[in-house]
Design a protein around this nucleic acid. Structure first.
Lengths: 185, 185
DNA sequence: GCCAATTGCTTGAAACCTAAAGAAATCTGG
DNA sequence: CCAGATTTCTTTAGGTTTCAAGCAATTGGC
């Protein structure tokens, strides 16, 4: 079982099982490792730090300026893109959160008048939700500022940096999806 | 109020308020926008997608293999780096979560025998927490597999990709911190 | 038509998280 | 020394989140 877990893609080409890799990192010092995965781990931690940092910043600003939570904003953002509305399942897939989570979130947003919810005629299991007129207006106001915040957060990156990051993150996403699929499927 | 919010770094050097920027992006098509922030927004969404994807994957595997949650794993990871222990405030700063959050998290980990907690002699407000022997042993086991999962998740990236991502994310982090500080400070 | 599997959503329990307020200990400038 | 500010941690209230279990509607095979 563990042996299977260890068949990491990195090592597929190396045949023996006990190879030691000698790494000379001029910036720090020489390190010797049986398997060299430290870089990926550091990369992951840095990715996580960036996201957490920015997410916290956006969360604070949304609360300060509009007294709204990030999940609500995200849900409204999804709906803004599709005026004819979407099902709860669609939302949960797009937001990458659990189904039960969306139920509660939608409940509160319907309650506050931002969302409109109706049972589908074709399939009575399905709930279609849309932004109300008021909900859409409020979201647009928030979204406009939000875009400026984000631009500011990434303000020190050159256009080239942005393009390069986009490219590398696309590659990362594909790699991660492949890895997730390999485990589950 | 809004006017203040609009002083985005990008635009600081431009004096008039209604400049239109003409951007010729050879890869896509010419676009004309009063302010060009769409790229940053897309970048942010992609960053968030990557992190959410990987985080979900790690969360699943931790639960499956070790029946442990990600926050607990993260907390133990922080403590593993500092054998002599740290204060709750240290932990909350490092993990970038609220103070009250750490209180509950630590409570449960002390309960389950993974953590050891004691009041500091020098300052009786301070609680110092450390991994117990059992806690450390269990963490090391989890960490070893975790490192392989992460290597697998980033498996399709070349070493050069990894280096470049590290560099760009470092720049992103610095930019985001500067932006956050400018708002708060 | 009928039964089983699937799909869409809801519910409930436990954990996680934040912001804000509060309690206790310590520090600091008279 | 001592009152006020600060620091450290806990508590509280309100949400968010996941997972698992469950219900209801639909679909597909026979």
């Amino acid at each position: 079982m563990i042996a299977e877990q260890r068949s990491v893609r990195d090592l597929r080409t190396t045949k023996p099982d006990k190879i030691c890799i000698m790494i000379l990192d001029s910036e720090t010092k020489a390190v010797e490792l049986p398997e060299h995965h430290g870089d990926e781990l550091r990369l992951w931690l840095r990715l996580l730090t960036c996201t957490t940092l920015i997410e916290g910043e956006v969360r604070s600003r949304l609360r300060e300026r509009f007294d709204v939570t990030l999940p609500r904003f995200d849900l409204m953002a999804q709906l803004d893109k599709v005026p004819e509305g979407m099902t709860l399942s669609d939302v949960s897939k797009r937001m990458m959160v659990s189904n039960g989570n969306v139920t509660g979130l939608v409940e509160r947003l319907v309650e506050s008048g931002h969302l409109d919810r109706r049972t589908s005629d074709a399939d009575r299991r399905v709930q279609v939700i849309r932004l109300t007129k008021a909900g859409r207006a409020e979201f647009r106001k928030m979204a406009a500022e939000h875009e400026l915040w984000i631009a500011d957060v990434f303000g020190d990156l050159t256009p080239k940096d942005v393009r390069e990051l986009m490219r590398l993150l696309a590659k990362t996403k594909a790699s991660a999806q492949k890895s997730a699929k390999a485990r589950a499927g």
